[in-house]
Write a protein that binds this DNA or RNA. Structure first.
Length: 667
RNA sequence: GCUGCUGUAGCUCAGUGGUAGAGCACUUCAUUGGUAAUGAAGAGGUCAUGGGUUCAAAUCCCAUCAGCAGCUCCA
């Protein structure tokens, strides 16, 4: 006998095997019609997934009102898309088709090169399928029968999947809808009519099984909603996010430029971008002083031998600019990292335990030859400046130093209003071969990271395989406006570079013996370039007052007041503001509009009234006209806002074109 | 690096083989105004670059460079 507990507290019992739909029908025909899927003990299952024969389960029937049902529906929509494509094109081989954050995709292998021009035809075919409203039928087959079936269907990827990835599964499920049958774990909605609105978004190549040694499949991205309004809202969100793109805003606001003649991925900072960047550097420098870092300066190149010792040269040979060959035995590398230089500073003299921890900081510019396809505005570049530092400390100081690094990073991010990040603990992949160092040190380091995060109440996600080759790390990861994740701040523990095999670092302990220090690599921003990119999108280009390249603009109602305008401008400059004046023969409305579009925080509007009373009229970018006040009051108000580094406006959300959230098809 | 798409004025874009276009920005002139666009005139392009096909190429083909999306990679 099975006991089914429903969310309203009622309990139903069944003697025979039953599905969630059976329970829904038992409750009422209306509910049965609305039921799309179910949640059994917190797990999303199909409307047709049999419940256990006995025991007790918590059952929640999912309808259009439940967020979880959306994912199920989208996966069904993916099947319909696949079915439509198979109808329209010959020789379609199906690969995988999971649900992602803002929709779904399906990978295909077919002769015809799909383009966006094919979308209308595919969408029309999908509409036809939906209109016919054939149900999704769940088929459970033995491993053997399943293999026979996919062979009959001549679906090579599915054959391979059953023979390899699913070799251990005794039974496998298929879903059939009309002539379309797909190996699929499901679940699916009962009937396609609940797909209210859908849209194909893009097509791109994707390596089969995510391995660059494999062939490239064609991946079609799409999304679906229960109703048209939700789809329209989603598409509008994507458009909005695109308007916030740092590459678009960077050009519009004159922050930076990239010239092919200088080189791909090499950022040329315009004066305005430089002003913002320098404010960030100033801000971090204050923190470095507070946390007792010692600024150092090191050159942009170093001997190849240095990076052979550090291990970077052999390991990252392909992603470095080629060495500069000066002479047969004299080769230099543009520095891809700052740590080896800092290590040489450490090694320049004997160190005592009394000196530790030693914290060397540097805004160090490094160069990496990233694959051309990876380059992306400011977020992935070939030359960037890290707000880098290396801490050399005793093993017992590691937790404390690590904690301080995390604390500083958190403070820096929160000061900028960046709260929407996750902390990723990059640990080593147990099967990976890229790592150096011994297991004991790795375990110690990973344990240290875990326990400090726990102690600090940080909800970190552990990701095996995300470690650096020399040690585990804690990364601060944020999403850009399109939903792509980027690593910003990072704190990395390193037992490797100090080791005998590398640089053999030492300090003399209280026992007068030589000991090995531990290194911590850390950078709260990570790369200033990437950070600026993320920040531009975070503020949608509207920087808070303290960061804004142009903090205020004086504008006169008529050119008659230019002299008064210049006088006021000078007073703001003297008070330390970045201010300009607009004395064009334009109407005040036009000047305001221009300043507003340039996202200038404050407008100081001057006319006869202000000149006579010796006041200024202040217009706020966000709140509009604030009325007139004395110049002292205006300066005081703005100085306050600037010194507090007040963040008054940020923009959230992304286009949701990011990572897979569930792979309902990957079995 | 791989797959696909794209490249026309400073910006956003139209232009499917026959004399290179619009809006905004820019310059000049007029206008001197009160919280998101005053009016007029003007200037600005080897149509990414290099080859090819053609009587004729922005348009068709090839290569290169660059950008975009995704994949892969990321010290």
């Amino acid at each position: 006998m099975l006991e089914v507990n429903l969310p309203d507290g009622s309990v139903k019992s069944y003697e025979n095997s039953i599905t969630p739909m059976g329970v829904a029908e038992d409750i009422g025909a209306g509910l049965a019609r609305a039921t799309l899927a179910a949640e059994v003990d917190g797990q999303v299952v199909g409307f047709d997934t049999p419940l256990p024969e006995s025991g007790s389960v918590n059952l929640k029937l999912l309808t259009k009102k439940n967020e979880e049902a959306l994912g199920v529906m989208r996966h069904s929509c993916a099947h319909i898309m696949a079915r439509a494509i198979m109808r329209l094109f010959d020789g379609v081989q199906l690969a995988f088709g999971p649900t992602i954050e803002g929709g779904f995709y399906y990978d295909f292998d077919l002769e015809h090169k799909l383009t966006e021009e094919d979308f209308p035809a595919i969408e029309a075919e999908m509409k036809k399928i939906i209109k016919k409203n054939e149900g999704f039928e769940r088929l459970e087959e033995s491993h053997e029968t399943a293999l026979k079936l996919v062979k009959e269907l001549d679906q090579h990827y599915k054959i391979e999947h059953i023979e390899t990835g699913l070799a251990e599964h005794e039974t496998l499920t298929f879903y059939r809808q009309g002539e379309f049958i797909d190996l699929c774990r499901g679940p699916h909605i009962p009937k396609p009519k609940s797909i209210g609105a859908f849209k194909l978004l893009s097509v791109a190549g994707a390596y089969c099984k995510g391995d660059s040694d494999n062939n490239v499949l064609q991946r079609v991205y799409a999304t679906a909603f229960f109703n048209k309004d939700d789809l329209a809202l989603h598409l509008e969100k994507i458009e909005e996010a695109k308007r916030r793109d740092h590459r678009v805003l960077g050009k519009k606001l004159d922050l930076f430029t990239i010239s092919p003649l200088v080189g791909q991925g090499l950022i040329l900072w315009q004066p305005k971008g430089t002003l913002v960047r320098n404010q960030l550097i100033k801000f971090i420098s204050e923190q470095l002083e507070k946390y007792e870092y010692m600024p150092v300066v090191t050159p942009n190149i170093g001997k190849v031998d240095l990076y052979k010792i550090s291990g970077h040269y052999p390991y990252y040979k392909d992603s470095q600019f080629a060495p500069i060959i000066q002479d047969e035995d004299e080769e230099y590398l543009l520095k891809p990292m700052n740590c080896p230089h800092h290590i040489m500073l450490y090694k320049s003299k004997p160190r005592s335990y009394r000196d530790l921890p030693i914290r060397f900081s540097e805004f160090g510019t490094v160069y990496r030859y990233e694959q051309s396809g990876e380059l992306n505005g400011l977020t992935r570049v070939r030359g960037f400046t890290q707000d880098d530092a290396h801490i050399f400390c005793m093993e017992e100081q590691v937790p404390d130093e690590f904690r301080k690094c995390i604390e500083m990073t958190q403070f820096v991010l929160s000061s900028l209003g960046l709260t929407d990040y996750r902390v990723r603990l990059g640990f080593r992949d147990p099967d990976g071969s890229k790592y150096v160092g011994n297991k004991k040190d790795w375990d110690t380091a990973e344990d240290a990271l875990l326990s400090v995060c726990k102690e600090m109440g940080i909800d970190a996600t552990v990701e095996p395989g995300e470690a650096a080759f020399y040690g585990p790390k804690a990364d601060f990861v944020v999403k850009d406006c399109l939903g792509r994740e980027w690593q910003l701040g990072t704190v990395q523990l390193d037992y490797n570079l100090p080791s005998t095999e590398r640089f053999a670092l030492e300090y003399i302990g209280a026992d007068n013996q030589a000991h090995r220090p531990v290194m911590i690599h850390r950078a709260p921003f990570g790369s200033l370039e990437r950070f600026m990119g993320v920040l531009i999108e975070h503020y949608a280009g509207a920087f808070p007052l303290w960061l804004a390249p142009e903090q205020a603009r004086v504008m006169v109602v008529s050119q008659k007041f230019e002299a008064y305008g210049k006088e006021i401008e000078a007073k703001f400059k003297a008070a330390g503001f970045r201010i300009s004046g607009d004395y064009r023969s334009e109407k005040i409305g036009a000047k305001i509009r221009d300043a507003q579009l340039e996202l200038i925080p404050y407008m100081i509007i001057l006319g006869a009234r202000e000149m006579e009373s010796g006041t200024v009229s202040v217009r706020d970018r966000i709140d509009g006209d604030l009325g007139s006040m004395t110049i002292e009051d205006a300066i005081r108000k703005m100085t306050d806002e600037k010194e507090q580094r007040l963040v008054r406006q940020v923009f959230h959300g992304s286009a949701g074109l990011g990572n897979a959230v569930q792979s309902s098809d990957d079995y």
